[in-house]
Structures are given as structure tokens and as C-alpha cells.
């Protein structure tokens, strides 16, 4: 029993089960799947589908955020801003100089690669500040947090753009003949790539070593500066992928102030909910990813209960605080010592 409690996956899965239970009691119809039609193809719809669909960007970001957290002991708070920037650059490359292009100026691959390059440059900038100049991650990324959205609106001259292109919409909606939303498929691909990287390279081991003790990992021949830098670069790639999905969902219309707003907070919450120490060190990638979907589950549950989207953060905050307090080590110790006290007299009676 205690083994289950101590497993890191316990917290996110317990939270998930609690949410499922809540929905089962309040409204079992929440889980209903139905068939819809999108562009002539039959697709699946329902709350569960919209959870795995809309949670994809968050899950992709959580992958990178987990690595950054583990290696640097801090969080990147600029992901929302750099996502806006990446999306903006992708749209800029696609549209050329028109506001509602009929044909795309460049292929989507090229646009994505350029967006990817920009996001990686942002990651490299953050990473350089953190790794070489030894600035705390949250402070270093504060720079792009303040400037990123402004640069994004500068790139597109603050114009509203609409890209009505079938192929560009594939990334945020559905591929032909496939009933599952594309973002989820992209998220799964990212997760598989990350799993392979962790399995067959020393990335995971080195990252954890640097996070646990920088000096001793250096003495063991690991380059802590490089590891921190690499983790930020990986996050940059994740940001570019998430930015592409989000831009495709909006059909190229990017509201520079509100695009992916607060997603950095959600991504950090996903890491925390996964039970990963925010001070760096050990991490569990699966727990973070489940954490990301739990957050989306919570959001959709609240929407289904008719909560005003503007007031949503208040409810989210209460749930998050309860989860974090329950999972806090001090609280868990107290509870376990309490249960022990309760158990001891019973044994004497027997």
C-alpha cells in the first residue's frame, strides 16, 4: 500500500480518477462519445475527445518544461510568449505580404522550420543566460516573457491575418479519413520521440545528475552548462510544435496579447502536478504528461458545469491548491503518522 502512495505517478493518476469519479456522479453523459462530420469525413466528438485534442499543446510543452525544470531547477515562464512568436513567424512566412493569402507563399514545412529556428533561438537565448551567465531561469526567461509577445506583433505589424488553406488546417483539426484530431497524433509522436531519447541516450540520466548536484556531476565528467543549454533547446522545439498547432487552430489569426495566454502557468502546473520537484533533480516524464491532461480534464469539466470562462481560473486555483497541499511531503508525513497512531492501540487490543 505504501508503495503505491510513494510512487510518483500516484498523484496525477489519483487526481485523474477523482475527476472521473466526480463526472460519473454528477453527469455520466460527460463521457459520451458521438460521431460528427468534419469536411465530409466522419469523426469522433465528445468531451473526452476535446480533452485529448486541446490538451495536446500543453502535453508537448510539459515534455520540454520537465527537462528544463530537472536540469536547471527553475522554470521557463516565456513559453507562451515564444509560442506566440513562433506562430507569428510561421504565419508571416506562409502569407508573404498579404493579409488573407489565397495561395501559400511557402510550403508549410519551410514555414515550420523557420518557426522552429526562431523558437530554438529563443530557447538558446534563455539557455545561454541560464547556463553561461548563471541567472536564475525564472528571471532569465522573464525577458522574453515581457518582450516576446511584442516582438510577435512587430513581426506581423499587428495585422489580423486569415489563412484559409486546407493543408494548414490539418495541423489543428483533422486529417482526411482519420477520426482522431491531429494535435493528439502530433502529441503522441512527440511523446514517442522523447521516450526513445530517454531510453536510448543518456539525456535523462545526465539531466537528473546535473539537477541533483551540479558540482558532483561535473566531477563525473558531465558538462552541466551544456546539459542546461540542451534542455532549453529541446523546450524550444516543443514550443515551435505547439505554436504550429495553435496557429493552425486559429487559422493564422493570432491575437498577440491573448494567444496561448497563461499556458506557461499551465505547463508549470503540469510538471508540479506530476510530482516532479520544481527545484530540479529527478523527473518522471510520464507523470508530467498525465499532469498536463489532468489540467485539461479539469478545464473541460468546469466548462461542462457551465462555469464562465473568465471565472475559470478561480476554480482551477482552488483545485490546484487542494492537490498541491495533499501531495506535499509534510502533509503526507503528518497524515501517515496520524494513521499510525490510530493503528497502534488497535493492535494492543488484539
Amino acid at each position: 500500500m505504501s508503495k503505491i502512495f510513494k510512487n510518483q505517478l500516484f498523484i496525477p493518476i489519483a487526481a485523474l480518477l477523482l475527476l472521473v469519479l466526480f463526472n460519473l456522479i454528477v453527469d455520466p453523459a460527460f463521457f459520451a462519445l458521438s460521431k460528427g462530420v468534419y469536411d465530409g469525413d466522419s469523426i469522433l466528438t465528445g468531451n473526452l475527445i476535446s480533452i485529448i485534442d486541446n490538451g495536446s499543446e500543453l502535453a508537448i510543452l510539459a515534455i520540454g518544461m520537465t527537462l528544463v525544470t530537472a536540469a536547471s531547477g527553475g522554470q521557463d515562464i516565456s513559453v507562451g510568449a515564444t509560442m506566440t512568436l513562433a506562430g507569428s513567424v510561421i504565419v508571416k512566412v506562409l502569407r508573404g505580404s498579404e493579409t488573407s493569402p489565397v495561395t501559400l507563399h511557402q510550403s508549410i514545412i519551410v514555414a515550420f522550420l523557420v518557426g522552429c529556428l526562431v523558437a530554438i533561438l529563443c530557447g538558446a537565448f534563455n539557455g545561454a543566460l541560464v547556463a553561461f551567465f548563471k541567472i536564475q531561469p525564472m528571471v532569465a526567461t522573464l525577458i522574453l516573457f515581457t518582450a516576446g509577445r511584442s516582438i510577435a506583433s512587430w513581426v506581423n505589424n499587428n495585422q489580423n491575418i486569415i489563412i484559409k488553406d486546407e493543408k494548414f488546417k490539418y495541423f489543428g483539426y483533422y486529417l482526411p479519413k482519420i477520426p482522431i484530431p491531429t494535435p493528439f497524433i502530433i502529441a503522441i509522436i512527440c511523446i514517442i520521440i522523447m521516450a526513445l531519447l530517454l531510453k536510448f541516450t543518456t539525456l535523462g540520466l545526465y539531466t537528473q545528475a546535473v539537477g541533483i548536484n551540479e558540482n558532483s556531476s561535473r566531477l563525473n565528467g558531465i558538462n552541466p552548462t551544456l546539459m542546461k543549454f540542451v534542455s532549453f533547446i529541446i523546450l524550444g522545439v516543443c514550443v515551435a510544435v505547439a505554436g504550429l498547432i495553435k496557429a493552425s487552430r486559429q487559422e493564422g489569426t493570432i491575437s498577440y496579447g491573448g494567444f496561448a495566454k497563461y499556458i506557461e502557468m499551465d505547463a508549470i502546473l503540469a510538471v508540479a502536478l506530476g510530482g516532479n520537484p520544481l527545484g530540479g533533480g529527478k523527473f518522471n516524464m510520464a507523470a508530467s504528461i498525465i499532469g498536463a491532461y489532468v489540467i485539461q480534464f479539469l478545464t473541460i469539466t468546469l466548462y461542462a458545469r457551465g462555469v464562465n470562462p473568465e471565472a475559470l481560473p478561480a476554480y482551477k486555483a482552488v483545485v490546484v491548491i487542494i492537490l498541491v497541499v495533499i501531495s506535499a511531503p509534510t502533509v503526507r508525513d503528518k497524515i501517515s503518522s496520524l494513521t499510525k497512531k490510530l493503528r497502534v492501540p488497535k493492535k494492543e487490543v488484539c
Partner: peptide, 13 residues
Amino acid sequence: FIVTLAGMFFARG
């Protein structure tokens, strides 16, 4: 960070 993040969400909501 987490606690005051939740505080921020709560206050905004």
C-alpha cells in the same frame, strides 16, 4: 511559485 500562481489565478477569477 506554485502557491502564489494559484493565488494569482484565484484573484483574477
